[in-house]
Design a protein around this nucleic acid. Structure first.
Lengths: 349, 349
DNA sequence: CCGAATTTAGAGAGCGCTCTCAATGATCCT
DNA sequence: AGGATCATTGAGAGCGCTCTCTAAATTCGG
């Protein structure tokens, strides 16, 4: 039990002395060791080992201006980030990819106004090299904050505030919501369905709008009564389905913009005595783990690879950091990425 | 669009010059401003404002040896940290409490052997002031790592490795698993049940053992056939219930060590035609949000305040950091905290 | 109104590390 | 062999901030 809690950790200096070389040489060895004779490298390595030397990150950051950390920022309040499996899976992807590149993950949640200020200060303080940002609603102040701070940022989901489209410097990763919706609706059409309704997500989120756009792409002049706005929750889906059935009892298919809402819709359909898919075909969106497969009947849905989204966000961010670091502006400018979706056929359509 | 991405941020020096004072004075103002004339304070404040000055954390850390960040470490592999609502809620509490104290949350997940080494290096590098650790299994190497690094740590859940009990310096936050279990079983007894079985959690986790101990406290010589080990999952609970029913069909009550397992148990009981609670009374553990209330029938269970656990872990850690910082060893030594549980009566018992 | 006590401000020494630049010795070419 | 080239190494200057220590300014008692 050698509890060294208060003992100061050894410094570069100490290692240098022990190895009988200069600080510079130790630094070189610690950071890759090129240009140092093998004999010395060995000596330094041994000294490092014996002293249990670990570089002090603060000192290093002070001169390199690199922290090796990335902030993950999300607005918690309305969406209960953690309980949201969508976010959880993205976070997992982010965490894994960061670990793979030896970077750290600093989690920044905002709930109240004061938090925004805190986050701004934090980012400006140079704690992190870049940020990955989930700005779930279009009126969120976070994007403006990161812009002001001037910190490299990658957005999760296509930014939706006014002017965002035009700004090519904005980096984001999104799934192909519109294409996925198109594929879903197309599938319903190919099944011979003629009255295809849709339950959308909240219209202040870009993903919802995109999915609705995809619906419209295939059904140019859809009856407005066939379109109801939901809120991405199970009960919301149930409410929307109820509304739909009241307004247009003759519908024979529904494209539901999320699996969770589809769950609610399925429940209402069952309660009202509709058979799925015979009377009403249903297609969801997400292919959420532990949900879509276990609905009754198993849900046909549009799969998006959430973890991969997280990973790609990190990769994009790190690449953009490399760009601005070295004087190596090689290649063409980085651009956002859209991840393809894929229809997973199960039993509801 | 004043994109200042590459512009260096202003330094203390710059503020000092602008305000016409020394660096020291600016530093004093920025850090509380006591001992500086009001006139100067005002001048410095203005300069800070005009320049948009934000202290560089790396430089500050280098001298103060304080980072204002805390690591949250968890072993991801087996338990899928993020999907685990238990952990999610704890993380939420941790995040909120840290934010309240203006500290940052660095998330460290370990999946493979290489990650442990990375985490060790990270902690030793002085990136964080302390750590909050979830070591879910007794053979996890993380506790040993934090010990070696000598970083102040608070454990989530009572540490269970050999010798842990004796070590009073170990700080942890746990709920009163044993007491909660006792209360659950006691309730079943008071209902007049005579054959009370239990489905435990995995026996390599302390919480499971504690809950089983609570069961034994009330049922000193329980029939071993009435005890089956589960794995905290829904299907695991179902399997365990099946086994129980096969071994001891005459049972009239079950204390299930988690809500998720209770869910599975309820399902099996229903399938086998047992009425709950008439034939078999059931009590769960956790009072998990969105689960316990919505089972059929609603689950009677032992409530533990998970978010509060997270908050307390942080509070304990920060207090312990304060202790070792100042030369102010006021008061008696810090000690671990056990959070009380509470029986929530619903319909299953 | 003067010296002592008390505030308030500035100078300057680091914190531990990286990185440029110059010095050293080894190697090469004609 | 002699100068040029190249590979290694060390010296030392910061990075931006805090903090101690001293100097200057202010207050106060007698």
């Amino acid at each position: 039990m050698s509890d060294q809690i208060f003992a100061r950790r050894p410094t570069l200096e100490a290692v240098a002395e022990r190895a009988g070389v200069s600080r510079a040489t130790v630094s070189r060895v610690v950071n890759g060791g090129s240009g140092v004779r093998e004999a010395l490298v060995e000596k330094v390595r041994r000294a490092v080992e014996e002293l249990g030397y670990v570089p002090n990150q603060a000192a290093r950051t002070l001169v390199t201006r690199r922290t090796g950390a990335v902030a993950v920022i999300a607005a918690e309040p309305e969406t209960e980030v953690f309980t949201n499996p969508f976010f959880a899976e993205q976070l997992l992807g982010i965490s894994r990819e960061l670990a793979a590149h030896d970077h750290q993950l600093v989690l920044l949640l905002t709930e109240e106004a004061a938090d925004y200020e805190r986050v701004g200060r934090y980012l400006a303080g140079g704690h992190v090299d870049g940020a990955v940002l989930f700005s779930l609603h279009n009126d969120d102040p976070l994007p403006e904050i990161v812009r002001q701070v001037g910190i490299p940022t990658v957005f999760g989901g296509r930014p939706g505030w006014p002017g965002a489209e035009a700004d090519r410097s904005l980096l984001y990763v999104d799934s192909d919501n519109r294409g996925g919706a198109r594929e879903a609706v197309n599938h319903l059409i190919s099944l011979g369905r003629g009255r295809i309704a849709t339950i959308t997500g909240p219209m202040d989120q870009v993903a919802s709008v995109d999915r609705l756009d995809g619906y419209h792409d295939m059904l140019m002049d859809a009856d407005p009564r066939l379109i109801v706005e939901g809120d991405f929750s199970e009960p919301g889906g149930a409410r929307a389905m109820t509304a739909l059935l009241d307004r247009a009892p003759e519908l024979d298919a529904v494209f539901v913009a999320s699996d969770l809402m589809a769950l609610g819709a399925l429940r209402v359909l069952r309660e009202r005595g509709y058979r799925v898919p015979e009377d009403v075909a249903v297609v969801g969106f997400d292919d959420m783990a532990k949900v879509a497969e276990h609905t009754d009947p198993p849900l046909t849905t549009v799969r998006q690879d959430i973890e991969e989204m997280g990973r790609l966000m990190v990769r994009l961010l790190l690449r953009s950091l490399d760009r601005q670091a070295k004087d190596a502006p090689v290649g063409r400018p980085l651009s956002s990425v859209i991840i393809p979706t894929r229809l997973v056929r199960r039993a509801t359509a």
